[in-house]
Amino acid sequence: MIGQGQGKLFGLMAHPVHHSLSPLMHNAAYKALGIGHQYQAFDIAPEQLGKAIAAIRTLGIGGVNVSIPHKEKVIEFLDEIDDEAKVIGAVNTIVRQEDGRLKGYNTDGEGYVRSLLAETKVELPTASILLLGAGGAAKGIGIYLLKMGAQKITIANRTLAKAEELQKQLEAYSGSPHIHTLSLEELDETKLGEFTLIIHTTPTGMWPNIEQVPLSLKGIRPATIVSDIVYNPLHTAFLKQAESEGAIIHEGLGMFLYQGALAFERFTGLEAPIEVMKKEVVEQLQLGGKQ
């Protein structure tokens, strides 16, 4: 059975999944540490998610990462949820426990905020933050922004009701009265000028749709920090637009690396070789990304 002996099988469940660089990153880490594990990508359609989780149990797979569109739905199929993931309401890492139970975690938010603070030196308590999107990634990021001292967050989403749902969840977590919502259509130049940190949390602009942007950034303040969690391509059309408006940009690679490193440590109990993982991903992105 997979999972016995020297090496275990780990992987990523998403739909679609062909664009992901997670297998490259994790397998490079295993090789660097001399571990016999393997990491594979599994394209799982939404209606097959329950069967896919059952397969983890049957095959003895050591754990999987979970990406769009499964981060919220997968919770119902697990045995246990980490407290942080429970608050966020989304899981991106599932670990098979020694007794065979499947436990869900969320490393997205922590990975993102670690990267943001390290690369931009932003002062979260004084920042006026615009969060674009209201899905699983936005939830994780929002919770960790509040955990690290953010005081003022506005959530903008194409569907206003989903933004309002996330607003309630963040307010329940923090008790902050300074969380607001609006639709993307309401974001005009005047409103954009109110923000000092803009964070894009949707897959818009991800390879192969690399020319797409979530909105126009005309009207932002000079030196606004604009962050995109999309890492493929590394320099998205959204970030190029931000640069043309005089913004400070924060690329998605840092979040991808740190959330992956945190997941690696959950899977193996070992410290992740982050520089090895980064080198492998950057080299692939420079070659044009995953084809």
Rank of each mutant, 00 (worst) to 15 (best):
R57G: 01
N232F: 04
G205N: 04
H70E: 09
L49Q: 12
S176F: 07
G142C: 00
A138W: 05
L234C: 00
A172C: 10
K152H: 13
V91I: 15
A261I: 01
I220V: 12
K152A: 12
N92C: 02
K139C: 05
L146S: 07
P273D: 08
V17Y: 04
A242R: 11
T126A: 03
V74Y: 09
T107M: 01
H178Y: 13
E119M: 03
Y173G: 04
L78Y: 04
L117I: 14
L285Q: 03
N106G: 05
L239M: 09
D43C: 04
R221T: 07
V95W: 11
R266H: 14
G50M: 03
F195V: 05
A90M: 07
W207K: 14
N106K: 10
T58A: 15
Y112L: 06
Q40S: 12
A138K: 09
G254P: 05
S227Y: 08
A28D: 01
L287H: 03
I61E: 00
V91N: 00
L262A: 13
G11H: 08
Y30N: 00
T120S: 13
L197F: 12
Y173P: 10
L170N: 13
R221K: 15
M13K: 03
A247D: 02
E76C: 13
M255D: 11
P233L: 02
G50I: 02
E251Q: 14
Y30Q: 02
S176D: 12
H200Q: 15
A272P: 00
K162C: 08
G104M: 03
L253Q: 08
K218L: 09
G7M: 09
L192M: 06
I249Q: 00
T236K: 11
I229M: 08
A127C: 07
S216A: 08
T107N: 06
Q286D: 04
K240D: 09
V64Y: 09
P16Y: 09
I68N: 01
K240C: 01
A223Y: 13
E119K: 14
V213L: 01
G11C: 11
S174G: 14
I220S: 10
I68L: 15
A28K: 11
I225P: 00
M1D: 10
I248W: 08
S20E: 11
H235P: 00
H200S: 13
